[in-house]
């Protein structure tokens, strides 16, 4: 836990000194402008919650994937990857902590999106259940980091994994119910969607903004936590196995 905390703190300091790392703080408000403009044009201001939440989740997910990949490739080009692997620390824990730091900082994009809906469009999206929103955002950030850590394992193995990374964005926006609710997806696709933690996150975040009482809050939070933990476990296992493999092939530092 202390390793996680120190690696988190280190990455937070590095991120604050490298603002380009959190480019979502620029892109999320721009997405919000687009979605709010569409909903206004369609006279559907009731969809404002979607317009505010979708950019946040999209940005966080793409950032988690990007960070996971960049973390490995940057350490490689910086010449620190081998030195890091040569330490007794658990590399999967270090990776997870560092991705979590970036996604946590990036949850600030929710505030930005909310402000964009309010200022240019005059729509005040009320947070009816702030605690639910807070818990859901925190758990989603953790789940994203955990799931994305599996991606970083691929980067250890394949320096060209960026192409794969790109293909993990839009399918997950759809499966995760970010752009449209899961209930709008074809019936055969819904069970698959429920295996993606984003679908639980997006539903619960929308519930947190709705005046209606939040139904089954704890089980839904637990679903995010369990799916995030599963992603984390898969990521950890993959990183460990792949590190063993590259020790044998001698390709750890290869770019």
């Amino acid at each position: 836990m202390r390793l996680f905390r120190d690696a988190f703190r280190f990455q937070a300091a590095l991120t604050l000194r490298s603002p380009d790392t959190v480019h979502v703080l620029v892109t999320a408000p721009l997405y919000t402008v687009v979605f709010m403009a569409i909903s206004r044009h369609a006279h559907r201001t009731d969809l404002a919650a979607y317009a505010v939440l979708a950019p946040v989740l999209m940005s966080l997910w793409s950032l988690a994937l990007l960070t996971a990949g960049d973390l490995i490739s940057r350490e490689r080009s910086r010449g620190t990857l081998e030195a890091m692997v040569a330490t007794p620390a658990s590399f999967p824990v270090v990776v997870l902590a560092r991705i979590t730091a970036v996604t946590t900082i990036s949850t600030v994009s929710f505030v930005e999106s909310w402000l964009v809906a309010w200022w240019p469009f005059g729509v005040v999206v009320r947070v009816e259940h702030p605690l639910t929103l807070l818990w859901c955002l925190v758990l989603s950030a953790l789940a994203m980091a955990g799931t994305a850590s599996a991606m970083s394992a691929l980067y250890v193995l394949l320096p060209t994994a960026r192409t794969l990374q790109n293909s993990f964005t839009y399918p997950f926006y759809l499966l995760g119910g970010i752009l449209v609710p899961v209930s709008y997806l074809p019936e055969w696709l819904r069970p698959l969607s429920r295996l993606v933690f984003l679908s639980w996150s997006s539903d619960l975040l929308r519930s947190a903004l709705s005046p209606a009482p939040v139904v089954d809050e704890l089980p839904r939070l637990a679903a995010i936590a369990v799916l995030g933990a599963a992603g984390c476990a898969v990521g950890g296992l993959m990183i460990t196995r792949i590190l063993r493999r590259v020790r044998s092939t001698g390709t750890l530092a290869r770019t």
Binding site: L3, A7, R78, T87
Partner: peptide
């Protein structure tokens, strides 16, 4: 092999934690 945007103290703190 170093994190140029950080201070030497921050660099060493990471490696110490590892």
């Amino acid at each position: 092999g170093l994190y140029g945007r950080l201070t030497p103290r921050q660099n060493l703190q990471l490696w110490g934690a590892l």
